[in-house]
Computed example of a mutant assay.
Amino acid sequence: MKHNITINGIHPTIISYKYDINGTKTTAKYKVLEERRIAKLHIGKSIAIKTFNGSSIIKDLKPYNFPIWLFLLIPLSLLLIGLPFLIYAILKLKKELELYKFGNVS
């Protein structure tokens, strides 16, 4: 388990396993958050896996991954807050430029 990461009070568990494809033994790791299903697993126990193009997953477990789109919410919120101020500043600057160019106050 990784104790420096907690999601809803659960630490992700890293399962390390070996499998054989066409006579080649491969070692893989899989991060999961499902504590109840992991409690049934023991060292040396056989598990069902799926493989595709050299990568593999454990058949009945959902993987742990952190949604990267969550980090996009911070700049998006700053953009939404700052956009009205930017538009106001551009309109104010446009009026000042017209004043300096043409001398017309509007």
Rank of each mutant, 00 (worst) to 15 (best):
D60R: 09
H42C: 04
S16C: 06
L91S: 06
N53P: 00
S16A: 11
I21N: 01
G103K: 11
I58F: 09
L76Q: 01
G103I: 06
L99H: 05
T13V: 13
I58M: 06
V32A: 13
I74L: 15
L97A: 04
E35A: 10
I15N: 10
D20C: 08
N8V: 05
E34L: 02
P67N: 09
I90A: 10
L83K: 02
P75V: 06
N4G: 08
Y17P: 01
D20R: 02
I49M: 08
L33W: 13
V105R: 07
R36V: 07
K31F: 14
K45F: 04
L79K: 04
N22V: 05
A39I: 06
Y17D: 04
L99R: 11
N22F: 08
L80F: 14
I49V: 14
I5N: 00
I7T: 15
K31P: 02
I90T: 03
K50S: 07
I74T: 13
L41Y: 15
S46L: 09
F52C: 00
S46D: 14
K101Q: 10
Y17F: 14
A28V: 03
T6M: 09
T51A: 08
D60E: 14
I43W: 11
S46P: 11
T26K: 15
H3D: 10
H3Y: 09
G23R: 06
I49H: 04
M1W: 03
L86N: 06
K18R: 12
L83R: 00
F71C: 01
G82F: 15
I68S: 08
N22A: 11
S77W: 10
T6W: 03
L91K: 15
P63N: 03
K95S: 08
A28T: 06
H42K: 11
T24H: 04
L79C: 13
F85H: 14
Y64N: 05
R37A: 11
A89Y: 14
